[in-house]
Structure formats: C-alpha cells, structure tokens
Simulated assay, not measured.
Amino acid sequence: MATLAPTVAPRQGGGADKDEEPEGGTSRVLGVFKATPFTYATLIIVSAVLSVPLVFAVSIALSTDHTVTTNAFTIFPHEFEWRNFTKVFEGDLPMGRFLVNSLIIALGSVIGQMVSSGLVGYAFARLRAPGKNVMFLVVIATMMIPTQITMIPQFILFKDLGWVNTYLPLIVPNFFSNAFNVFLVRQFVSRLPSELDEAAMVDGLGFFGIYRRIMLPMLWPVLIAIGIFTLTYNWGDFMGPLIYLNDDSKMPLALGVQYITTTAVAGQPPPWNLVMVGSILLTLPMIAVYYLGQRYLYEMDISGGSAGVK
C-alpha cells in the first residue's frame, strides 16, 4: 500500500525567512543604514555652512593692509597676501616665543593628565578599599563646582607658593587629573576582564606592575583621547595665562593674538589680517591633532570597554 509522505506547508511570502529565530527563541534583526544621494547632499551642504567661518578667517588673513583699512572683506579670498604669515613674526611682539610657550604649557598638561588619569581611574576600577565608591561620588561631584568659585582660592594658594608668573599653576594641577578624565578611565577599565589582573597576581605582579605591563597597553585609546581633549583645552586657554602670567616673554599664543589688537594706532582699525593669521596658527594644529588621533577617539568605546582588547 502506498504511504503518504508528510508535507510541510511553505511559509507565507515564499523563500527563507531572513529573520528566522535562532536557537534559544530570540530573534535578532540587524538594521543597516544605507546612504542615499540625498544623505551625501545633506552632509555636503551642512559641511559647507559650518566651513564658512574658517573660509572667512582665511580670506581675512590673506587680505592686504589696504583692505583692512577700508574694511572691504569678502567671504571668499580675492587677494593672496601670503607675506602676512611671515609678517606676523616680524613685528614687535615675539610671536615665535608665544608659540613655544603654548607648546610648553599644552604638552606639560597633556603628560600630567595622561599619567594621573590612568592611575586614578584604574585604582577606582580595580582596588578594593572601604569607602571607595563614596570617594568616587565625591570626585564626580566636583564636576558641578563652577570654575569661578575656585578661581580666587587657587590664585591665593599659588601666590603663597610663589608660583605666580610661572608655568607651574598652568601645568602642575594637571598632574592631579580631573573628574571627567577619571570617569572615562574607570568606565573603560571596569569593562575589561578582571581575570587578567588575577592571572598577573598569581605570577607575582603588584598593583603598579599590573598597570604598567598589562593594563597600560590596553588603555592607550582612552589615554590618547584624554590627551587630545587636554591639548585642545590648554592650547587655546586664555583665562589661565591671563591670571597667572605677567611677563610678555611667557605669554602663550592665545594671549599673543589678543595683544595684536592692542598694537593698533589710535583711530585706526586693528590689523585684522595679522589677527586672523594668529587665529589660524591656533586652529591648524588642533585640526591636525584631531585628524591624526580620530582613530583613538572612535576606539574609546566606554559603553563596551572592549576597544583595548581588539
């Protein structure tokens, strides 16, 4: 007798279901963003609008003195006075010295923040100590204190230490980190497997040995990101040097650009072309730093914390 083979009714819609449930009964749908010509057109338009101030600054920097006197600036450059980029260093102000001062302050601050933030953030994430969580909350709470409140007490402290008119008030505080950077490192380290520390302890490594030989190589993305943030802030810092520095020979470039506007003859406009040259000198290094370090900013995945072990 012929037997009837069991038949399976096909799925409605035909073909295999792309959203078929895997083992365990949990469906997983992956959505992929597809760029369209409209997307690229929108990005180009937005980028063009955001680039207008930079283009206008370059246009003013390339203007002649006659254009500055007549205030006949244009958004797009019609003149190309490249000599302005050397002329700014030929005036009475030591612009070259200002540039070196900015490098000293910014690089010293970057080293301080990277060293201290890594150690403090790792300690909060790994060390077991009574009151650690309360202390961490206190550190985070300092982010809510406005800078203006601590400005006068800090000045009195540095004045009593004899640090006024030196680079120390601008560099030394960075060796004590800040709450935001500590939070970044702590969140990054807390996502790393603790078995790495335990295995290192079995091999006889202490706290600093584990940090230097195991954790530090994995922390480079977040530490470099902290360095970029610190460099960006201190390179263009205006208020700190204005408070603590008195000698022109110690002024950074941010104050030097401001000094250019005060060298104008009474009744005449400031040399805006030279001012914009100084502004470009402040801007271009930060663009280059971001371009070279953007990979580390993307790798700083504080939500997953797995960037260091990829």
Rank of each mutant, 00 (worst) to 15 (best):
T3G: 08
P6G: 03
P6T: 10
T7H: 04
A9S: 14
Q12M: 06
G13E: 07
A16C: 01
E23I: 14
T26D: 11
S27P: 10
S27C: 11
V32E: 12
K34D: 12
K34H: 13
F38P: 00
I45W: 02
I45N: 00
V46S: 05
V46F: 06
A48C: 13
A48I: 10
P53A: 08
A57C: 04
A57Y: 01
S59E: 04
I60W: 02
L62D: 05
D65R: 13
T70D: 07
A72V: 06
A72R: 14
T74L: 05
P77D: 10
T86L: 11
G91Q: 03
M95K: 01
R97L: 10
R97A: 06
R97M: 06
R97C: 01
R97F: 00
S102K: 06
V115G: 03
Y122M: 08
R128A: 03
K132R: 15
F136K: 07
A141R: 02
M143I: 13
I145R: 08
P146V: 12
T147C: 00
M151F: 10
P153G: 09
P153L: 07
I156Q: 09
D160G: 04
L161K: 06
G162T: 05
N165V: 11
L168R: 10
L170M: 14
I171C: 09
V172P: 02
V172R: 04
F175S: 13
F176R: 05
N178D: 13
N178C: 08
R186C: 00
L192N: 03
E195H: 10
D203P: 09
F207I: 15
F208T: 11
G209Q: 14
L216V: 13
M218V: 14
V222W: 02
I224V: 15
I226Q: 08
L231E: 07
F238V: 15
M239F: 13
M239P: 00
N246D: 11
N246T: 14
P252L: 06
L255T: 12
Q258N: 14
I260R: 01
I260F: 00
T261M: 10
T262C: 04
G267Q: 00
Q268Y: 01
P270E: 04
P271D: 02
M276G: 00
I280M: 12
L284M: 12
P285Q: 03
I287K: 05
V289N: 00
L292Q: 07
G293R: 01
L297K: 03
D301N: 15
I302T: 15
I302L: 15
G305P: 09
A307E: 10
V309A: 07
V309T: 09
